[in-house]
């Protein structure tokens, strides 16, 4: 790989691209548009892996209940797991303060105008966390069902929240986001009795039409109901993340992490 720009031109193949023409010439590249971000994300993932930390990217529309879910999760797992949170918001430290009030370290990223987190922002934040003393890092993305879906942050899994007040056709309207989900949580189910037009089965059908087999579990953070499948899922994935990595990966890690 070329050291200047990360393109796939090598001394062995560059003669294919080189045209000794004075005026215009075309270079074929075939590079991902987010190659920079993706390389940074791989680096972040290596950090998490090196510390046996499970990293989760929480995404949803604004107000679907990400922070409330984190508060409920921390309350339930407080004596069992060491949790840290990276909070992404356009403005304010409010969400980070809600997490810190639970006695858990939280780093706030205020993105200003950017409607999503990217891997570079998360890298800055993860170096403010003592990963040796953490089992799970939750990354609460900016509330937005569009932009965050395109940016790998270095997480292991995507968790997408859909609150029952948003409409059961959200997976059909935001297919890129819901296709990327490894787990979908149907939130605020305590409100279901007051809503006559939200059908959880319809939400699931829309998700399956995206050829996504991810589990879809209903819960209420407010009433602390339905949390058990989610908590078990966390326990299982945290255990897998903390298992020692295969011996051969050590070499790659030490070269990608040499600055940290």
């Amino acid at each position: 790989m070329c050291n200047t720009c990360g393109c796939t031109i090598t001394p062995a193949n560059q003669y294919l691209l080189y045209r000794p023409v004075e005026q215009q010439h075309t270079l074929s590249v075939l590079n991902h548009l987010l190659a920079e971000n993706n390389a940074q994300a791989a680096h972040n993932r290596a950090h998490f892996d090196a510390h046996g930390v499970l990293a989760l990217n929480l995404m949803s529309s604004p107000g679907a209940g990400k922070t409330a879910l984190l508060e409920a999760t921390i309350a339930a797992l407080r004596d069992e797991m060491r949790i840290a949170v990276i909070e992404g918001d356009l403005e304010t430290e409010n969400d980070a303060e809600r997490i810190r009030a639970q006695g858990v370290p939280a780093v706030q990223i205020t993105t200003g105008t950017a409607c999503h987190l990217d891997a570079h922002m998360v890298h800055g934040a993860l170096h403010q966390i003592d990963l040796d003393r953490i089992d799970i890092v939750f990354i609460e993305n900016v509330g937005n069902l569009v932009c965050p879906a395109s940016f790998d942050l270095g997480q292991h899994r995507n968790v997408v929240l859909l609150s029952v007040t948003e409409g059961d056709d959200k997976p059909a309207k935001y297919p890129v986001m819901f296709r990327a989900a490894d787990l979908v949580l149907l939130t605020k189910t305590d409100l279901l009795p007051h809503l006559d037009d939200f059908d959880p089965a319809q939400a699931e059908r829309c998700l399956r039409r995206l050829a996504n087999p991810a589990p879809l579990w209903p819960l209420s953070s407010k009433k602390m109901t339905g949390l058990e499948p989610w908590l078990n899922w966390l326990r299982g994935h945290a255990r897998k993340a903390s298992a020692p990595a295969p011996a051969h990966s050590g070499v790659e890690l030490s070269s990608t992490l040499n600055h940290a």
Binding site: P20, Q24, V29, A211
Partner: peptide
């Protein structure tokens, strides 16, 4: 519902057309 996407999520730089130049600087 068990399908693999074989095309449709591309986000690629395919090529660039440059004016002048035509030989590479040593990159390392």
């Amino acid at each position: 519902g068990h399908t693999q996407l074989i095309s449709g999520n591309e986000m690629q730089l395919v090529s660039v057309e440059l004016l002048g130049g035509g030989h590479t600087l040593p990159s390392n």
